[in-house]
Design a protein around this nucleic acid. Structure first.
Lengths: 137, 137
DNA sequence: ATAATACTTTACGTTTACGTCAACGTCAAC
DNA sequence: GTTGACGTTGACGTAAACGTAAAGTATTAT
C-alpha cells in the first residue's frame, strides 16, 4: 500500500533501489563508505528526500566515471556550505578545481561526440553513394 | 638520439608512456585486451601514429569513465568503416546508439556543472556578505 | 668483457565496486 | 504458529584495471 505520488516524505531502501534501478546492496555499500547516513526505524533504514537527492547525485557521478571517494569529497562540498570562514575558503577552492575538471571532461565529451558524428556522417554517406538504404531489406 | 620534433614516424612504448603520462604496463595491458596491435622490431613494440591516435582515444574514453570493453567496441566502429554493406549498417546503428549515450552523459555533466556553480556562487556570496576576502590573510 | 639501458614475458598482488549467499529479525496474513 | 515479504548484518567471491616484482634478451657505452 505504498503511495504512488511523485515524492513521499520518506523512502525505504527498496523504494530507492527500484526508483534508481540499483540493488539494495549498492545503497548499503554507499552507506558503508559514508556517502549516505539514513535514519533508522528500529533496524530498518529510513531515507529522507535529502538522502534521495544525495543518492541521485552519487549515481550521476558514477555515470560520469567518478570514484566513490571522489563523490564523497563532492558531497562534502555540498554539505559544508555553512562551515567556518576558513573552511568555506577551502571549500571554494576545491569547488573551483572540481569545476575545472568537469569542464575539461566536457571538452573530452564534445570532442568524442564530434569524432563519432564524423564517423556516422562518413558511413551514412558511403551507403547513400551506393544508393543503399540505411535500413535492411 | 630520439627526434624532438612534434611527431615522429614511429614511437617506442616509453615514448607514448611519457607523452600520455601512463606506464608501459598500461599500454601493454591494452594490447593484451586487443585495443592495440603494434608492429614488432624483433621483440620490441613499434607504434605508428595510428596506434598513437588509438591510444589517445582510449585514454580520453577512460577519462569519460568507459570500460576497456566499451572502448574496444568504439574502436571497432572507427575501424569498420570500409566493411561490407550489412556490416556498415550495423555499424551505423551502433554508432548512433553510442552517440545518444554520449549526449546523455553530456547532459549529466552539464547538470553537475550547473549544480557546482550554484554551490560556488552561494559560498562566494556568503563570504562577500561578511565582507571577507576570498584569499586568506 | 662488463655494465648500463631499454625492452620483454610471466605471474602474482591490489584496489574498487559491488554480487552472492547464509543466517537472522519482524511484522502481517492465514 | 508458520509462512511469506521485507529488512538486517556479516562474510566471502569476483571482474576490471592495472601495479609490482622477477628473470630474461638485446643493444649501447666504457
Amino acid at each position: 500500500m505504498s503511495a504512488e505520488k511523485p515524492v513521499a516524505e520518506t523512502f525505504t531502501i527498496t523504494d530507492l533501489a527500484g526508483e534508481f534501478k540499483v540493488t539494495p546492496r549498492t545503497i548499503r555499500f554507499y552507506e558503508d563508505k559514508d556517502l549516505l547516513a539514513p535514519q533508522r526505524n528500529g533496524m530498518n533504514r529510513v531515507y529522507t528526500r535529502r538522502d534521495r537527492a544525495r543518492l541521485k547525485l552519487i549515481l550521476r557521478g558514477r555515470r560520469l566515471g567518478f570514484s566513490l571517494a571522489d563523490l564523497k569529497e563532492m558531497l562534502d562540498l555540498y554539505d559544508l556550505g555553512d562551515g567556518q570562514v576558513e573552511q568555506r575558503r577551502v571549500l571554494l577552492k576545491r569547488a573551483r578545481k572540481q569545476l575545472a575538471e568537469l569542464e575539461a571532461q566536457r571538452r573530452d565529451i564534445n570532442d568524442t561526440i564530434r569524432d563519432l558524428k564524423g564517423v556516422i556522417d562518413h558511413v551514412a554517406e558511403s551507403l547513400r553513394a551506393q544508393g543503399i538504404n540505411e535500413q535492411a531489406a
